[in-house]
Design a binder for these strands. Sequence first.
DNA 1: CTTCACGCCTTAATCGGTTAACTGCCGATC
DNA 2: GATCGGCAGTTAACCGATTAAGGCGTGAAG
Lengths: 350, 350
Amino acid sequence: MEQVSQQQSPPAKRPTIADIAKIVGVSKVSVSNALNGQPGVSDATRAKIAAVAEELGFVRNSAARALSGAKAAAVGLALCRPARMLGTEPFFMELIGGIEKVLSDASYSLALQVVSDHERGLEAYRRWWGERHIDGAILVDLRRDDARVPALEEMGLPTVVIGHPSGSGRLTPVWSDDAAAVRETMEYLAALGHRRVGRVAGLTGLVHTAIRDEAFTAACADLGLDALPTVHTDYTGEEGARATRRLLLSPTRPTAILYDNDITAVAGLSVAQELGLSVPRDLSLVAWDDSPLVQVVRPPLTALTRDIHAYGAHAARTLLDLVAGRPVDGYEDLAPQLTPRGSTAAPPAD
Amino acid sequence: MEQVSQQQSPPAKRPTIADIAKIVGVSKVSVSNALNGQPGVSDATRAKIAAVAEELGFVRNSAARALSGAKAAAVGLALCRPARMLGTEPFFMELIGGIEKVLSDASYSLALQVVSDHERGLEAYRRWWGERHIDGAILVDLRRDDARVPALEEMGLPTVVIGHPSGSGRLTPVWSDDAAAVRETMEYLAALGHRRVGRVAGLTGLVHTAIRDEAFTAACADLGLDALPTVHTDYTGEEGARATRRLLLSPTRPTAILYDNDITAVAGLSVAQELGLSVPRDLSLVAWDDSPLVQVVRPPLTALTRDIHAYGAHAARTLLDLVAGRPVDGYEDLAPQLTPRGSTAAPPAD
DNA sequence: CTTCACGCCTTAATCGGTTAACTGCCGATC
DNA sequence: GATCGGCAGTTAACCGATTAAGGCGTGAAG
């Protein structure tokens, strides 16, 4: 706390289109048109303007541009995570990376706010939109009967919802078929010979949790498997461990467990090993979402893989279409693919 | 891709201070002053204006405000991560969470851009600043002789550097004493009886890597330990595993290894177990940065703990001071604290 | 009675772009 | 030769807020 290092305030004034206009000897409007590729400027003039702009290091003032009714060239994302869940899931960094890729190619930027609850998230969207700070928004962590959906609809803010169409109202959904992934996994486990499969799920309120819950129950019924009660968690390692312990110590101990994320699956693996169970000999585990994490443990976990980066990119691309007024349908991404690794095998003979 | 769900464009015009002025029967200026808590407005008028603004759901147009020379109420962060490293480290989500907390309390927002290299990161800062989109910036992943430092200095963009003062030039640094943490760890390991300690480090170019490298070498010398060559990685699990394998298969196999992040440490644990080494009986491991990850594996890893959320919050607070023109020193956060867990013990008798 | 200060409020100008409407001018068309 | 159309470019107005400068009435001081 001893280091002193001051910065002086910016002295130089930024060049404006008026400066360029004066130098080139044309009007502001011609400069504006030239720089924006609008017609009505000769190629010669256009070139001269471009040269001067370059030389002066001209940068458009987005405030002025926005004020004149143009786009803000930014989209908003209010991420709702209680502090302790932050950083537990690689999912969001990946997703944001994908979103960012598309946005920055279009010279859009992302306004990000991490908030404690959906209420405050909605406030952020409302402020950004009211201030004309953003042209569109991305909504994540979709809940059942999510109050944010009607609110955003009413605001008229172009929004892409990352989540199933069943919960996205009139907003544009981008989603993947989680039910299919559950089905594929259950068929795989059933084929291996498993009859009692447990499930450690995520937060109950989320739409995708409900969808997976349902698909899980349906698959059990279809495949004639024992339906064990699903245990819900908050995605943390601790709850994943607790849930796994509960399943493994119950009288109807499962021979395989399907997790809703990577952290709980890894925690489950540790619990199993603590209890003296060998994976995959005594117990098979499947993680949802592939990440460095699940590949680094021993044995590496069988996982439901999806390209989260691409998922985010699709959402961003869809939003840009929406903002530009291009006709937009929802976008269904690929369903997560089962990637078998060392954590799944036939159940013990018993 | 079948779902069709259109959104209509926003029909209603947002209320402006002119609207409020007309209704209340005063001038725009009075409205502006009233809403900004400026003097020159009677309490009665002020109350009336506030009431009408509330009723109309008035939100300030930040573009217009920015155009008139006011603050942009946002700060920028260009995060430079190659795609595959994204999401591997919980560190940045935590850091951003801490930054966000402080910013949103001050009604500031964060402009975030994930870029592929520092060159593009600098471009983002330049664009944001030129556009008056941000009032200040946060710089991370500080490298030695980082070209971004002089560039930002020259731009006059108020910037807080998350990194050691030795590399932050005239910009304001926020840092923690990594050297002290290395020293503490080495003393601990030496006290346990270790004589050969290996180190799996991060990217060579980074300032904090160099500082830890140096502290490591110095500590070895001071404590009379064998100086094994440090192995550098890109923080991924794969490279962590490779580095660990290399150390463990060398003729001078270490009895303890200090890692530069959590992912490489966990990968190292797996490698050790694969090679038939028992942790901590045959080998002790120390991870840098505590995360759910290192607590979930067996045994849970001894780690260098720091409050990353608070770290980010300090950086943001310092930046807000800087932006407001308040006198600012650099800020030295607490040094990472050693948290012993099950992965460290005395070395084998040999 | 003048003068000054002050509180409250107004008008005017400004930030840096964009859009709308209009002016010359040239060549093609009838 | 008059008319039309299109291109290159102009001027004027405007977006919504802020700052600067000034007016006007009231009460206190000289």
